[in-house]
Design a protein around this nucleic acid. Structure first.
Lengths: 247, 247
DNA sequence: CGAGCACTTGATCGCTTTCAATAGCTGTGG
DNA sequence: CCACAGCTATTGAAAGCGATCAAGTGCTCG
């Protein structure tokens, strides 16, 4: 379904995430500098990109595919703490070791920069630093919205919340209008959804079945989802139907 | 217990949060500029500083006291999504309306700047923008650590996690060595703790009683806590005893 | 065709919530 | 000075939701 992004192209002007990524506000000169130090890496679904505690010697943007940030307790309980979609930034300038695991949830292509040169570029080009601050603040908002989901919502509301977030981000990437049914493929396994939502995979499965029975969603196979009425889904998520802001 | 911070002083050099706040890396000139536009505001415990959705026309730092960020659902369920201690930054440059309520949990003093001049200062003085990025990244880490607490920990572990965070932040503010018992006053009601942890206040009360019975903590009155063995507490929190990083 | 994997569904268990009563403290007014 | 309201906190009993344990289904791939 997802078209494979050609790794060998080098022209930032053609880049599909150009307008949303950390380089969004760069001018032609800055872009040229970035172009000089960037390189692409691809990862297969399931591969771990960075282990928690590892030294991080690169940063980068997700070009295509989905990555996830997860924390794991000693006894194996794991919680996903971030879902990185195309254009999202990976890595932390100014810190050496990674605070959580970064995994490729699907096949993944990243546009990478070695950390040192990127940090230098950041201090010389305010556009990058400024954009990174905005993106970090957005991520902080998303993380806090997620805290409400984890702390206070029921299992059914959690599933509805996740579906509505995926639907919204998907719609915003594909630049669709927001009328009519929304159709997308779930990029996550039931287990990954459970790890995101603080549930077990059995509960995820049960609640998806329930939402399907109640016709809040339609399912074709296990992953292909149709949302006939986005307003209805957002009610189920416990969100205000209007005033929901696009992330 | 907490000494009242004198609101009428104007010298940033004497400021108790000088070395940790958004102005931490400013040089003498930058500090002087900030000093020109800053003003102090105090709030009483329980007062709402900013309502979700309100226009925000100022930003600032917590000088003394504790503020909290909370989200509320239509049916009244609330989740605290941030705990702001002295030196933490309030507000979001580049965004007009507040995404959550900000409340004074205790009596509070803030060092404020009108948003517009602050934003201008930010774009002209990289030290401030850089420090704000670092602080935002730290907050993002803290939010994600909290997602693990909310999503995967038991009630007992949640209480132990909260106590250990308060103990650590308290120790780092008062610059104490980390040997011997730790003593502090809980700055939160049982209800505020419940809102932070995604629990009910009854469960909070029960788990505190249980930790007390098991001598993980000692209680004098309702709020005065002694932690005889920090390692023990961190085990109860489900955290690795060593390698815990100071926030 | 059978192994392996993702997922579904059922039955039961247990933790946290819910509902409810009570204790302790502070401040107010007769 | 005591009675009482109002608040925070504790404790008990019962209910409910999601977890756990356990089969079983459907699909893909060798």
């Amino acid at each position: 379904m997802t078209p494979i992004f050609k790794i060998d192209h080098t022209n930032c002007g053609d880049c599909p995430i150009r307008h949303r990524a950390v380089c969004a506000h760069c001018d032609a000169n800055e872009l040229e500098e970035l172009e000089g130090i960037k390189y692409y890496r691809s990862f297969e679904a399931g591969q771990t990109i960075i282990w928690s505690g590892d030294q991080m010697n690169f940063v980068g943007s997700v070009v295509s595919g989905i990555a996830s940030l997860t924390q794991t307790m000693e006894d194996g309980r794991t919680q996903m703490v971030g879902l990185l979609l195309p254009s999202d930034f990976v890595g932390r300038p100014g810190r050496d070791s990674a605070p959580y695991d970064v995994q490729a949830t699907t096949d993944l292509v990243m546009c990478c920069f070695r950390k040192k040169p990127f940090e230098e570029l950041m201090s010389s080009t305010p556009h990058i630093a400024h954009r990174l601050l905005q993106m970090t603040l957005d991520e902080l908002d998303a993380a806090r919205e997620w805290m409400l989901v984890l702390g206070r919502k029921t299992a059914r509301e959690k599933i509805a919340s996740l579906l509505s977030i995926i639907a919204r981000r998907d719609a915003s990437i594909h630049q669709k209008g927001n009328s009519g049914p929304i159709v997308f493929d779930l990029p996550l396994t039931r287990e990954a959804m459970a790890d995101y939502l603080g549930l077990t995979l059995e509960t995820v499965s049960r609640q998806i079945s329930a939402l399907k029975k109640d016709e809040v969603i339609l399912l074709e196979g296990k992953r292909h989802v149709t949302i006939p009425d986005m307003g209805r889904l957002m009610e189920e998520a416990g969100d205000d139907t209007d005033g929901g802001f696009l992330v």
